[in-house]
Write a protein that binds this DNA or RNA. Structure first.
Lengths: 199, 199
DNA sequence: TGTACATCAGTGAACGCGCGTTCACTGATGTAC
DNA sequence: TGTACATCAGTGAACGCGCGTTCACTGATGTAC
């Protein structure tokens, strides 16, 4: 077997990473396979050695966020069970609703970048997307419970609402042409979420 | 001038209405001008008698929501200054986060259907979209202030957070393949928003 | 150690289709006489 | 009142381009001897 055994795997990862960034920035339909392959330093034709279709790549790109920045966030938030920080939920909110995240078109969470795209995509894509939300909600549940134990159903409802508030605030801010209004939305959501997290 | 003077205007309105429904359901890129014109009972070629481009139509379709169901909601919510209902904000939340609205792919609010499309569209489209948010936030501000007067800045922040929560809850629910989870999100957002509106 | 070979990741031309947009034409309807 | 005319909303064929996907080929690299 020519080419070292990790070679193909590594190329594949490069393609997914390039795709994640491009999809985040431009959405599914406006990203071409040419663009992805060029960004990955390859040419068009090789694509189908790695993926069955453009939509299959899309699903992987969405899911890959959990491995990249998502993992970084989980680490920073101290989700490591050996070292549970006292303020996980609050830190998560702070990172998610930060000005930096709002401005990061490449690295942003796909839940912000792609919601309406995903709502119309196939099941595989939607499942990847659901995985992102479940990770976020799970993290909130952990954090909230650690801080102030409550009945599970109450914690869960609170976590789901927090997720809606975080994602909604960022989605709206992202779509406003008036950047002052965008910032106002972000800050309002940030304060409301912080308050919600201490209840 | 042949054709009665309202004739062209009426046709134009038909096209916008057909477009609003189709864009809501399928997004910008997946709707073709053929689809829109056929839905409006016309043929392809006439389109450019009415609109400069597909994107121009998109902007109008987004804005048209305010005239249609949006106006209906404002009316139902008693925004009429002659007859301000006591529970405007709560009624708005109830309608927006209802199971009915979640299931209404044609008639839903474009803020739910199109956020990531709009974030990448041209300025005209984004301005239409911003108009929707401003209408919603204004309605919340009115309602909250009527119920319990507060410093303006506080009311506004609360209204913006409510909008983020309503839109975020619906956007997330819409993208989940697991309908049980979707319903859980919608209900959590609904309860959180209702609580937030009485604070 | 060196050489022939086999494999398969990657290349780039080509295919086929769809869609936004243009354009010459049609025909319904209001107006002038 | 009726007829010829002018206007312009609507038609449908055609253009040009882009993109997802396919395919025959290339050439880098690991293996067998």
């Amino acid at each position: 077997m020519p080419y070292s055994s990790e070679h193909k795997q590594k190329t594949r990862t490069n393609i997914v990473e390039a795709a994640r960034i491009l999809f985040n920035r431009h959405g599914f339909r406006d990203v071409t396979i040419d663009m992805v392959m060029e960004e990955a330093g390859l040419t068009r034709g090789g694509f189908y050695n790695h993926f069955e279709s453009k939509e299959a790549l899309y699903a992987e790109a969405v899911a890959s966020f959990l491995m990249g920045r998502g993992a970084q966030w989980r680490a920073e938030a101290g989700v490591d069970p050996m070292n549970p920080g006292p303020d996980i939920a609050r830190q998560m909110i702070q990172a998610y609703l930060s000005a930096e995240h709002l401005g990061d078109l490449d690295g942003q969470c796909p839940m912000i970048a792609l919601p309406s795209d995903v709502a119309r995509a196939n099941l595989k894509v939607q499942s990847s997307y659901q995985g992102l939300l479940e990770a976020m909600v799970g993290l909130f549940e952990n954090g909230l419970n650690m801080k102030k134990p409550k009945p599970n159903s109450e914690t869960r409802q609170q976590a789901l609402s927090l997720a809606a508030l975080c994602v909604g605030g960022m989605v709206l801010a992202r779509s406003m042409p008036d950047s002052v209004l965008a910032e106002e939305i972000r800050l309002a959501a940030y304060h409301a979420a912080t308050e919600m997290a201490v209840l």
